[in-house]
Amino acid sequence: MITNMLYSLGGLLLFIMGLFALIACSHPLRKILAVNVMATGVFLILIATAYKQAGAGEIDPVPHAMVLTGIVVSVSVTALALILACRVQETSNRSLSQQRKNDFTGAGE
């Protein structure tokens, strides 16, 4: 019971930390990291609810299966988000440099 509580509280703190970083940080990579930390916190709470000590009986496999699918989905979502962040930076960067060039030529004329 103590162990379950300990790991659930750890998961809760991870979730809260991730949430705060998600709001407070502005770099896209850091936001993606924060979402990952949040997801890990949720997984930790889910698994901790199912934990039983060795010898105290069978462990409920349903949360394990859910977390397993969750981990795989979160990795693929992370990859998609990373590509999106790259694309956003590419396009915004290009438009910014074009804008600068226009500014510069405009000033030159």
Partner: peptide, 26 residues
């Protein structure tokens, strides 16, 4: 966020750690 943390700690303290309840069926 501090408010949310307090709420969630309440939830965690109230949990009875029985899993999903589907373990016996499985």
């Amino acid at each position: 966020i501090v408010f949310l943390t307090g709420l969630l700690v309440q939830v965690i303290l109230a949990t009875d750690y029985l899993g999903s309840g589907l373990g016996d069926d499985v």
